[in-house]
């Protein structure tokens, strides 16, 4: 019992230290360190909770500690800078499309190839079921180990990838199945072969064709939404962003090296570009934010998948209730009315 009181006092002390420091620095920098400290305290408290034979007093104290922890944690994650979000969006342990496929869908059956040139492993397409409902799943695919990363081309598709995606979408359209796309790419691959085979044309065609596909489309930005390479599979009736994903016209590094002539100004650029889910929501460029587990999707794949699944099911149910003509009209109007940041003089 004495042990428990001691740990509670210790945790209480540590927590107040973090709280004061947090208050002092007022949300500028070093949040990742704060996160680490929080994790440590959390572990202690969890251990404490698991100890048998606590008095009511200790239980109450633990409860209080947990509340303070929650408050602090949401403050810390809520105040992540745009660059920190970018780092989270690119976190190597972040769930990728196939991680979600495994957890959110059943009866996954992949389809390959663009029928013209090759199969592009940077985009995966396949038939799957969402809670029993047949859907077409299309998403960028990144990887974790070097060999796989090269195989997946770091999630940067060639034109074949976009053409495969469109082919899969047309199959879905033909058989009246909804399309769910998952976006996580640094961008379309800027390579010699990609240019030769018409990267721009492949992206452009997808944009036009997705605007008029006669089935519901839900897009989720799960990690990095890298410019045209992301948009090419992201013209949806609903475009959702996961809490820690980013969506931008150019990477912060690219922007920094062009506009500041200095790639190390990436943090400034990330801020200036307004790339976080909250930013896009405020500018009404997206339809919703999918929450992630505390600390980010990489901390708990199961929980992240569950949250995503819930959001997909809810949105799909709503879209399926809309007659197709109306759906197409509202998809058009949504993109027609998007990003109207001009005035007449």
């Amino acid at each position: 019992m004495a042990d428990a009181t001691l740990v509670v006092t210790g945790a209480d002390f540590l927590l107040s230290m973090v709280e004061t420091r947090w208050a002092k620095r007022n949300g500028s920098r070093m949040e990742s360190k704060a996160q680490l400290e929080l994790e440590k305290i959390e572990q202690q408290v969890a251990k404490l909770q698991s100890l048998a034979g606590q008095s009511e007093e200790t239980a109450r104290q633990i409860e209080q500690l947990n509340q303070r922890l929650d408050a602090l944690r949401s403050q810390v994650t809520g105040k992540l800078t745009a660059w920190q979000r970018t780092e989270l969006a690119r976190h190597p342990q972040r769930p990728y499309t196939l991680d979600y496929v495994e957890r959110v869908f059943s009866d996954w059956s992949e389809i390959h190839g663009d029928r013209g040139f090759a199969d592009d492993p940077a985009i995966v397409c396949g038939m799957a079921r969402l809670q029993g409902e047949e859907v077409m799943v299309i998403g960028h695919q990144k990887a974790r180990d070097t060999k796989q990363k090269v195989y997946r081309n770091f999630g940067m598709p060639n034109p074949e990838g976009y053409r495969k995606a469109l082919r899969a979408m047309k199959i879905a359209e033909k058989f009246g199945r909804p399309i769910l796309t998952f976006v996580d790419t640094p961008g379309a691959y800027p390579g010699l072969g990609a240019e030769e085979r018409g990267q721009a044309e492949a992206i452009a065609r997808n944009l036009r064709e997705m605007a008029r596909l006669r089935v519901p489309i839900i897009t989720t930005i799960t990690g990095e939404g890298g410019s045209g390479g992301a948009l090419a599979i992201a013209v949806g009736d609903r475009v959702l962003m996961m809490e820690n994903s980013v969506y931008s016209v150019i990477s912060p590094e690219g922007c920094a090296s062009i506009m500041w002539r200095d790639a190390t100004k990436k943090e400034l650029a990330a801020e200036a570009l307004h790339i976080t889910a909250k930013d896009l929501d405020e500018m009404q460029c997206i339809d919703g934010i999918v929450p992630e587990p505390e600390g980010g999707a990489h901390t708990d794949h199961e929980a992240a998948a569950a949250l995503l699944s819930a959001s997909l099911q809810e949105n799909l149910a709503k879209l399926k209730a809309v007659p197709i003509a109306e759906l197409l009209a509202s998809r058009y109007n949504k993109f027609r009315q998007i990003a109207q940041f001009f005035r007449a003089e």
Binding site: A204, L207, R208, E209, A211, R212, S227, G228, L231, A234, V235, Y247, S248, V249, I250, C255, I258, M259, A272, L273, H274, I275, D279, L280, M283, C285, R331, Y332, F335, R336, I338, A339, F341
Partner: peptide, 25 residues
């Protein structure tokens, strides 16, 4: 796309392409 308008510039691609689908039809 114009970098200084960020993702708003990107959204123009989708907007114009959607209009072109209608022109095509």
């Amino acid at each position: 796309a114009r970098m200084m308008e960020g993702v708003i510039s990107l959204m123009q691609l989708a907007k114009i392409s959607a209009a072109l689908a209608r022109l095509d039809e």
